[in-house]
């Protein structure tokens, strides 16, 4: 029996949690609104700052899309592309981010990252959906296989069908989950004329120079350097010059 006092404590705790969440949501939304107002007044640097703050506290697809727009108007191509890629990652159904990326890449003559088929499939839905699908379908299959025996239910064709379906869904989600994982290693060069170094050292020979917004895939890390593979070649860049779509 739960005592009255315990019940009161539970209610207070719940209310506190809700208030805290609301406060957080309110601050993120406030920055979003401030950023929108600044953008409409063409104060793009301030808009960028507001949207970035909102995205830092509450990352959301709409926030990243607007951040990308503000960065683009402010002349920062790489940051804009990164923000739109993050928006597309969180909400693949939203065509705005995708169109903006196409527009930006065409305008700036940049290439899109080369995606494997797993990664292309993974981009159809948000990454978390694939994870929940895989998790849910697998455990549902396990439960459907185990529970009838435990609960002394009669085994039926429906249960077998459910198990087959769930296992099928699980197997189908394996490549997409793999694609989500490999896609998290994709990033973009932030600064223009970033040297792609032959070795992870400060005085390394530059293999080539990368344009801001050029995509790369992280293969390894060493100290302050990342080994990335671009479309043409492989080399090392400094951590500060490269940003991943999914920050670690």
């Amino acid at each position: 029996m739960i005592s009255l006092r315990s019940l009161q404590l539970l209610i207070c705790l719940g209310a506190l949690l809700i208030c805290r969440n609301d406060a957080g949501a309110n601050s993120g939304t406030n920055f979003f609104k401030l950023g929108t107002a600044a953008y409409e007044q063409k104060d793009f640097p301030h808009a960028t700052k507001m949207f970035a703050t909102s995205a830092a506290s509450e990352p959301a697809a709409g926030t990243f899309q607007n951040l990308g727009n503000a960065e683009w108007q402010d002349g920062r191509t790489a940051e804009a592309i990164l923000a739109w890629e993050r928006a597309a990652c969180l909400k693949p159904f939203d065509r705005n981010a995708e169109n903006n990326l196409k527009f930006a890449r065409e305008s700036a003559q940049l290439e899109a990252p080369e995606l494997t088929w797993c990664e292309i499939a993974a981009s159809w839905l948000p990454a978390n959906v694939w994870a929940w699908l895989a998790c849910g379908s697998f455990w549902l299959a396990v439960a459907t296989m185990m529970l009838p025996g435990v609960l002394r239910w009669r085994r039926s064709a429906t249960q077998q069908a459910i198990v087959a379906l769930c296992l099928g869904v699980f197997l189908l989600t394996l490549p997409t989950n793999y694609g989500s994982w490999t896609r998290s290693q994709i990033g973009f060069v932030l600064k223009r004329e970033t040297p792609l170094r032959l070795t992870p050292t400060a005085e390394a020979e530059a293999v080539t120079k990368l344009a801001a917004g050029e995509p790369g895939r992280v293969l390894r890390e060493r100290g302050n350097y990342l080994l990335i593979r671009t479309r043409r070649t492989t080399g090392w860049v400094e951590r500060d010059d490269f940003a991943l779509i999914t920050p670690r």
Binding site: T199, T201, A202, E203, A204, E205
Partner: peptide, 8 residues
């Protein structure tokens, strides 16, 4: 630069 890199 090469020697400095080797030392690094």
């Amino acid at each position: 630069g090469d020697f400095k890199s080797a030392l690094e």
